[in-house]
């Protein structure tokens, strides 16, 4: 079953076609990855799914229902969570408050309740705190930094906090925009492990954009390749890797042998 289906989506800014007839399925309980060269439209596609961009054509179906016309907060309420390519945490807040914000849609306290902080309002806050501590902070191993302001944290940890915030939304589909970009090897391995665990233990479907081919091929169940706004290949990692169009899009030439020859001297020099 497909939890998310994208049908013939087209998006253009003026004359620039960011997405052209993009169709894509995200099967439930899989790790689906979108790859493609810079400017291929991967993040634009994410923004269409989140509701920031309004595609001129096509439709996005989530759990069998069309998402047309829903504002981003509504989509969040339906269980679509997301992280950003360039970390979008609230820098003035502590790690704990950032994560709690993820639970915002599942909380009900109104303005008056907030002002008196008594009875139901307090119970709800405590329930959220407990759940965040037990399920998320423990799981992502960030208990030592929970009181720190996000702005002081190293990059890898900030990425992890952003993931924690998305998990607090209790999503059905988690969209990760370049989760390991700019990380060192150890941080990448941690993140890959978290992503696999999230799928296994939480039953969350993952839709990911990533450039790190090693990781993509290792953990993905399903891969779609975008180039110049079009899907040029789709399938499991083995199939996509062998697809000549994909090789051409990435390396600019389908003659692999000649490319190898070109690349080899560089490698020796390095």
């Amino acid at each position: 079953m497909n939890i998310l289906e994208i049908d013939q989506l087209s998006l253009s800014f003026g004359g620039v076609k960011a997405l052209e007839d993009v169709s894509l399925r995200v099967p439930k309980d899989t790790i689906t990855t979108i790859i493609g060269p810079n400017g291929a439209g991967k993040t634009s596609l994410f923004n269409c799914i989140s509701g920031f961009y309004k595609p001129q054509q096509g439709r996005i179906t989530y759990q069998g229902k069309p998402l047309d016309g829903l504002r981003p907060p509504k989509r969040a309420g339906l269980g679509l969570a997301r992280t950003f390519q360039n970390i979008a945490l609230f820098r003035g807040m502590t790690v704990l408050d950032n994560i709690k914000l993820g639970a915002h849609v599942h909380m009900k306290t109104g303005l008056l309740g907030s002002l008196v902080y008594f009875g139901r309002a307090r119970r709800e806050e405590m329930a959220v705190r407990e759940e965040v501590e037990r399920r998320i902070i423990d799981f992502l191993e960030i208990d030592h930094i929970r009181r720190q302001p996000v702005a002081n944290l190293p990059y890898g940890l900030q990425k992890r906090v952003e993931l924690a915030r998305a998990l607090a939304m209790k999503p059905e589909v988690l969209m990760l925009d370049e989760p390991v970009a700019g990380m060192n090897r150890e941080e990448k391995e941690d993140m890959a492990r978290f992503i696999l665990d999230i799928r296994e233990e939480w039953g969350i479907t993952i839709l990911m954009v990533e450039h790190d081919m090693g990781m993509v091929m290792d953990i993905s169940d399903h891969i779609a390749v975008l180039n110049f706004g079009k899907v040029i290949a789709e399938g499991d990692p083995g199939t996509v890797q062998k697809n000549p169009d994909v090789i051409k899009a990435y390396l600019g030439n389908s003659d692999i042998e000649s490319l190898r020859r070109k690349l080899n001297p560089n490698r020796e020099a390095a």
């Binding site: 969040a76 309420g77 969570a81 997301r82 609230f90 408050d97 849609v105 939304m169």
Partner: peptide, 14 residues
């Protein structure tokens, strides 16, 4: 505070 710090993120969080 979320709206002050980064309004796009706030929208994504619902």
């Amino acid at each position: 505070i979320a709206i002050r710090d980064r309004d796009i993120s706030a929208e994504i969080l619902g």
